[in-house]
């Protein structure tokens, strides 16, 4: 196994790792602010239409949302185990755990698409395509927000899957290993962010 060369602008491996970590946290901060815009929009329209939101959230299937929440929480655990086994030089266990993470994330997206289809079947399309009757004439606003928020979250899940597959390839090629595990740590941080956003979304959209 050949040792990886340190980029010329870093003086030590520790310096490189710390720089990457602070950079990743800065990036996560901007992700949080990105989603916070959606949370504010949710709060404002819930404040304007409390009864409509209460009614609309009962139209979502909380059981599917709950299963998806479990999937993501387990996937965060397998991600952590993947990082752990990389640091301890166990390539096989790393790949098994990362593979499980990708599988769980994919299950999340599949269930999400079933949910979307069920909504479409009742005419709950986003925006101007909305085509359903109900006790509230503002119902389309809830579904506009629902599809926007969960859609953007699903996009982040999709990007996460891509990143984890990329990391698996690097682990397989042994360019990410117990000597150099910065990339998998960073992807791990990103994946936990995607998980945490969903943990807030689930009660706000499905339960309240």
């Amino acid at each position: 196994m050949s040792k990886r060369a340190l980029p010329h602008y870093f003086a030590s491996e520790a310096q490189e790792f710390n720089a990457c970590k602070v950079g990743m946290w800065a990036f996560i901060a901007q992700e949080v602010l990105f989603f916070s815009g959606l949370f504010v929009a949710y709060a404002v329209y819930r404040f304007y239409n409390p009864e409509m939101f209460h009614y609309a959230s009962s139209l979502l299937d909380w059981k599917l949302g709950f299963i998806n929440t479990i999937f993501l929480i387990i996937s965060s655990f397998t991600m952590v185990m993947g990082v752990y086994h990389t640091q301890h030089g166990n390539r096989k266990k790393t790949l098994i755990n990362l593979g499980a993470t990708v599988a769980l994330a994919t299950c999340f997206l599949v269930i999400k698409s079933f949910e979307y289809q069920a909504k479409f079947a009742h005419g709950y399309y986003p925006g101007m395509y909305f085509n359903a009757e109900g006790p509230f004439d503002t119902l389309h606003i809830f579904f506009g927000l629902y599809f926007t928020i969960t859609g953007l979250h699903a996009l982040h899940v999709l990007i996460g899957i891509g990143l984890i597959v990329w990391i698996m390839a690097r682990v397989a090629k042994n360019t990410v290993n117990s000597d150099y595990f910065t990339p998998i740590e960073m992807v791990g941080l990103y994946w936990h962010l995607v998980d945490i956003v969903w943990i807030f979304l689930f009660p706000l959209l499905y339960l309240l």
Binding site: P126, G127, M128, I141, G144, L145, T148
Partner: peptide, 8 residues
Amino acid sequence: ERMWGIGI
């Protein structure tokens, strides 16, 4: 909002 009119 402009393309789909999500009502925000």
